[in-house]
Amino acid sequence: MSPRLSPLDRAIGAIPWLLAALLGAIALHLLAVLALPALSPNGAFRKLALHLPAGEKDLLARATTGADGPTFSDPFAALAVCRFDLSQGPLRLRAAADGDHPVSISVRLTDGTIVYSANDRQTPHGRFNVLVVTQAQADAQDAAQDNPDQAGAGAADDELRLVSPRPRGFVVFRALALREGDYDAAAATRDGFQCSVEKPAP
């Protein structure tokens, strides 16, 4: 038979439980905030790229009232996406601006973090030649170039090598229509965007 506790004793006894509940709630909140970007069904990676084979592009439909694409999409933007999984090899991105339509590329991780973005005015002659690699693949490439037997295997002058902090993500290519009625021309520029998986350095 346990002794009968006074209200004060009961209140004091509840303090550790209240603190534990509070700390647990803070931990749960932080975990949820950190996990949501990769798990949310509305997240851009899950919605646009999750089911794409790595290294294959998908041309997105133009944003309209009924479109099921990302929210707050620009109706003047022609978009293409490409998923990457660097465990299968580095990803090569190529695109060229036509001089009329502003063009840009952004490299994003599965949680949506943008690790690289550039437009055609920031690249030589409006051309993009980007190689997305892991740090290990970059090290292997550097070692291969230092090896005299691999002479001639160096990167092209216009190549930008981007070391991705994580191996999985997606790329968004964007070409902009200058006015209503110009979307098809922008889409034609968008259609020239290329992405492909390359063989890792031996």
Binding site: V33, P37, S40, N42, G43, P70, F72, I114, Y116
Partner: peptide
């Protein structure tokens, strides 16, 4: 900061839940 790698965890979660595809810093700003 939605457009670069300095995005804070709350903004990243809101972007994912709301289904937004923000512009990269090198692309522009909304």
């Amino acid at each position: 900061r939605l457009g670069d790698s300095d995005i804070d965890p709350y903004a990243r979660a809101i972007v994912a839940v709301d289904g937004i595809l923000p512009l990269g810093a090198g692309e522009g700003v909304a």
